[in-house]
Design a protein around this nucleic acid. Sequence first.
DNA 1: CAATAAAATTAATCAAATCTAAATATTTTT
DNA 2: AAAAATATTTAGATTTGATTAATTTTATTG
Lengths: 219, 219
Amino acid sequence: MISQAVQDYLKSIYKLQQENPDDSVSTTDIAKDLDVSGASVTGMIKRLDTMGMVDYSSYKGVKLTEKGEKVALEIIRFHRLIETYLKEMLGFPLDKIHDEACRLEHHISEEFIERINKLLGEPKFDPHGHPIPSKDGTIIEYEEKPLSEIEPGGEYYISRLSDTDQKLLAYLELMNLMPNIKIKVIDKAPFKGPITISYNGSEKIIGNEVASNIFVKIQ
Amino acid sequence: MISQAVQDYLKSIYKLQQENPDDSVSTTDIAKDLDVSGASVTGMIKRLDTMGMVDYSSYKGVKLTEKGEKVALEIIRFHRLIETYLKEMLGFPLDKIHDEACRLEHHISEEFIERINKLLGEPKFDPHGHPIPSKDGTIIEYEEKPLSEIEPGGEYYISRLSDTDQKLLAYLELMNLMPNIKIKVIDKAPFKGPITISYNGSEKIIGNEVASNIFVKIQ
DNA sequence: CAATAAAATTAATCAAATCTAAATATTTTT
DNA sequence: AAAAATATTTAGATTTGATTAATTTTATTG
Ligand SMILES: [Mn+2]
Ligand SMILES: [Mn+2]
Ligand SMILES: [Mn+2]
Ligand SMILES: [Mn+2]
């Protein structure tokens, strides 16, 4: 059996690799992401290497092997299906689903996942707008940009909300700024100033910080 | 935080205590129930004692303290609500719910439990017929007897199915021998022979072994 | 009531994950 | 290119939960 710790490391490495696909992932980045010491990361990385989950050489960082990536994608699939289920079927608020899913992802069975996947109608995106990997590990990719970098003018669809700050997510849900909402930038004040947007038939003003956590689909 | 291991020990001690309320629970019985070595049990018991979860003195076995019992009942509440949820909302077969619940009980939040409790309509019994402890730790008790000890004649309601043998549970579900079904013993062959029963408008013959895993409510 | 069997505890190890402090390698700056 | 700063690894310890083997305590029985 693959322990929870191993699963969390693989998930973290996958995430960091996505953010920076060219470089290999550094110990320090993993340590920061998982909030553990650098020494712990070195120790675990060596084990992952002997398990064939990552390629590692001293002082050079790691890269997931095909095997490691497969495991990571499986956990991410679990995580995102659970998030979707918590929101859609149990009525959890948007800011509570991540933490719950992050625990459950390590403990539910294939059978459980298959059942909720069916009940949900095999969804392709979770409530944050994250794509849900298919069972064979393929994952939808598309181009997006933070709303804070969009010039006033065209219309866009919200594709994704950053899920790092749960307080912010609660605010976005309250404002009904959710994936798939059609949105238009009316005005953008200079020097990271407030941004005027129009959606759902009304105008709102949000801060640049907030807008930088909302991503819209490009073309 | 109370670890999964600690939770499982407390649950096991609670169960063994119920089976034999007068004696204190022996190390060997816990070891058998949890499938660990006796030495492991001695080690854990000492920790539980210093945590104030059990009263323990060397060579004399353990008894749950009020604190320990409260924790045990909380986990049992979680376990049984999850079982009910897996059956009622996700359509799990009766023989698959125990193992899944036994893992999840340690990892779901109060919030999750409260939500499924509401959605299920605050059920009082799980699919095996086990009473679900209330949030404050009270638990319904009633008298019951194995069907194998019932003499032909009166009518009874199935109260509970033993959940130790999952294969047997699958058979019972197939036969529609489930809690709350009205049942009548028509004939009982001697020397632990087959038992003829009537329920749901038809007659069936089951083995004594099977009947000893079906419990009916007394009066 | 002593001999034997069974139950329980102790002692010594192990593995997984973590940590801090010290040492070493790499990168950046002057 | 040497010095300084940063990143990474090593060494040594800790905690939790488990093991086997040896010892001690309790229970049984002739
Ligand atoms: Mn997780
Ligand atoms: Mn998500
Ligand atoms: Mn359990
Ligand atoms: Mn049950």
